[in-house]
Design a protein around this nucleic acid. Structure first.
Lengths: 199, 199
DNA sequence: TGTTTTGAAATATGTACAAATATCAAAACT
DNA sequence: AGTTTTGATATTTGTACATATTTCAAAACA
């Protein structure tokens, strides 16, 4: 015969139980059926989402990470020559399939975009209104093109160091270099890895 | 009492039953639990995948569509000024969240990538080794930058029409324009919408 | 002999459910 | 009075299962 224990701890009471939104995604989930080949990519995405939310929890500011995700998209990349007409897969025109996010974003949690203004970096292929891909995890060294806040103003320049003097160099003869002295408040946001130019 | 019907059609036999891979994805599926905010995007992706596979069934050649999907990726886009340090969401530095595929690929089924060669289009911001985003669904009109096969050679130029004479113009004084005459076999692949430049 | 109809079998798919996990107020302990 | 332990409860989460769908060979038909 089993002893009936009358436990007095725990028990029914308001506010008991697991809280809504206590999943790693901070929101409810639902079961979705997806094809095998998409399982791994989507799982990767879910891990990434979790990591972002975790990072978010440690930040004082918010909004750095998206609340909604976009559609996946992989498209073929062609290269080389082509017999007149559209290329055939028999020939090796298809270099490989390419995903833009994979190509341009190595570390999602450390990457953001900035829209370029001005013509000071034309020589580096950066035109007004271009979108710059910026990686905050890359080491800032002389020669790198960086996004920085100069006295509160966002700017893109090539960082350089000549005779122990740090410079921000424009890649356009019409613009003067900026010498970094103590009165100048300069904060580097990250290193520009790619430029997206719309025609 | 129920009448026991002895059906003679159908019945046990080899090769009966639904075939493996008879799903719209041509492969097996599995249930995956995803956060609410990802449900719609992923459903969109699944629809896209189905549409691609359907289109594939109607094509003679393959390989235009990917067999494996990439990770999703949305990142913030910043704009404007910034108080020294990293931007705060209280200010409006965050222009919007941005997905590269969404930004650069309007029609996945009509879009592909080509790697640029040569310096003939420097003036349009196209450098050697840049990746060009090409949309085959955009109408080819004078002024557009197009990818075309010229006697089997892949090239990128600006299409123009002067006095009813069609031209392919380079955007670099060092390169001559190409006049389109009957002996020249020219097939337009599509219109260049974006240029991706690596630093 | 060629065409159409038919139903059992095999796979596909949405979801219900059981098991796992997190939460917190009250009890027990210092 | 403050800290730690405890267990009922609410939610999350993986997956088994019931249902729907597709397929094909044999039977029925023309």
């Amino acid at each position: 015969m089993t002893q009936l224990k009358t436990e007095t701890r725990g028990g029914a009471r308001p506010n008991a139980g697991r809280k809504k939104g206590s999943s790693p995604y901070k929101e409810s989930t639902q079961a979705l059926r997806v094809p095998d080949s998409l399982v791994l990519p989507i799982k990767k995405l879910l891990e990434q989402r979790k990591a972002q939310l975790e990072a978010l929890g440690k930040m004082t500011t918010e909004l750095y990470f998206p609340t909604q995700a976009p559609p996946l998209c992989v498209l073929p990349l062609f290269a080389g020559k082509v017999a007149a007409g559209f290329p055939s897969p028999a020939d090796d025109y298809v270099e490989k399939n390419l995903d833009l996010n994979e190509l341009l974003v190595q570390k999602p949690a450390a990457t953001f975009f900035v829209r370029a203004q001005g013509e000071s970096m034309l020589g580096a292929g950066i035109h007004p209104n271009d979108i710059l891909v910026v990686d905050r995890s890359i080491e800032v060294t002389p020669g790198k093109i960086v996004i920085c806040a100069l006295n509160g103003e966002l700017t893109v320049k090539r960082l350089d160091c000549i005779n122990e003097q740090w410079l921000l160099k424009a890649e356009n003869p019409a613009y003067a270099d900026i010498i970094l002295h103590d009165e100048l408040e300069m904060v580097v946001w990250g290193v520009v890895t790619n430029v997206i130019h719309s025609l």
